[in-house]
């Protein structure tokens, strides 16, 4: 990775800096005392069981949820004052991207460019080229005129990823981008992320199942009940293989055992 390892105390050198973060939802503490620093160029996986607070952490980082205590800085600026949203690409944890009126793949992807567009200004040639490029990367170029609601779950997820990639962000934040996605889409998606990582993009990704993405990860963070219980390399040594697939064929007492 090209991450600068110096300037450890310079907050501007961090893409994401989470300090002593606590977040309450519905009057209940969901995140407690979370500290996390992500350097530019790092590829970080956020792991943890359902309900451990992964989405809450991601949403707080992008400013969708307020911090009860502590703060989040993006590129050195506290999130409430952060204005350079064109540096950030966000993929929410959601498969359906459909409103009450049909919208095409092209239209949904083009809304990813809004952080770069001025009000009342038409989409320029550069913007159109960026949309074509993002569509090509997720292999949806020939579906651009199709209504998003008519696509499969994996294809819809690819549209959401293209929408995040189209503004060419320095920091990509993805919440379970591969959950419920077919294998072909997962491979296309991993290739798209690999291309961005090679260009130095910082990636923060929540996932149950990294699949083809596993090899890209520099570091994993494990959340449990709103706290970080592990933060370090995913492969410190090769003493044993990693199992990321579910054991449907396991000869053990059953998959509900824990």
């Amino acid at each position: 990775m090209t991450a600068p390892l110096d300037a450890d105390h310079d907050t501007a050198a961090k893409a994401v800096q989470v300090t002593d973060l606590s977040v309450d939802l519905g009057g209940r503490p969901v995140l407690r005392g979370v500290d996390l620093q992500i350097r530019p160029g790092e590829v970080v996986a956020v792991l943890g069981t359902n309900g451990s607070g992964k989405s809450t952490l991601i949403k707080t980082v992008v400013g969708l949820l307020p911090a009860a205590r502590g703060e989040v800085r993006l590129f050195g600026t506290p999130v409430p004052r952060f204005r350079q949203w064109k540096r950030v690409g966000y993929v929410p944890q959601r498969i359906t991207a459909a409103g009450g009126v049909p919208a095409t793949v092209y239209e949904v992807v083009s809304s990813g460019l809004l952080s770069r567009r001025r009000l009342f200004a038409p989409l320029g040639a550069a913007g159109k080229a960026a949309i074509e490029d993002a569509l090509r990367v997720v292999d949806m170029a020939d579906r651009r005129k199709d209504a998003v609601a008519e696509l499969s779950g994996g294809q819809q997820q690819r549209v959401l990823i293209a929408r995040a990639l189209v503004s060419d962000p320095e920091l990509l934040i993805l919440d379970e981008p591969t959950a419920g996605v077919d294998l072909a889409s997962q491979q296309i998606f991993a290739d798209a992320i690999r291309e961005r990582v090679a260009r130095g993009t910082t990636v923060v990704m929540v996932s149950h199942d990294l699949g083809p993405m596993d090899a890209l990860i520099d570091r994993s963070v494990i959340l449990r009940r709103g706290r970080i219980v592990y933060d370090g390399p995913p492969h410190a040594s090769q003493t044993h293989a990693h199992v990321h697939h579910t054991h449907a064929d396991s000869d053990d007492s059953g998959w509900l055992t824990s």
């Binding site: 077919d182 294998l183 699949g211 003493t239 293989a241 199992v243 054991h247 053990d252 998959w255 509900l256």
Partner: peptide
Amino acid sequence: DEEPEVGVPAPAPHVVSPTHPH
């Protein structure tokens, strides 16, 4: 026809760590 969907979060799957010498 799409490929079957994988990676749908299953309820706490039982995953064995293979060849765990320690």
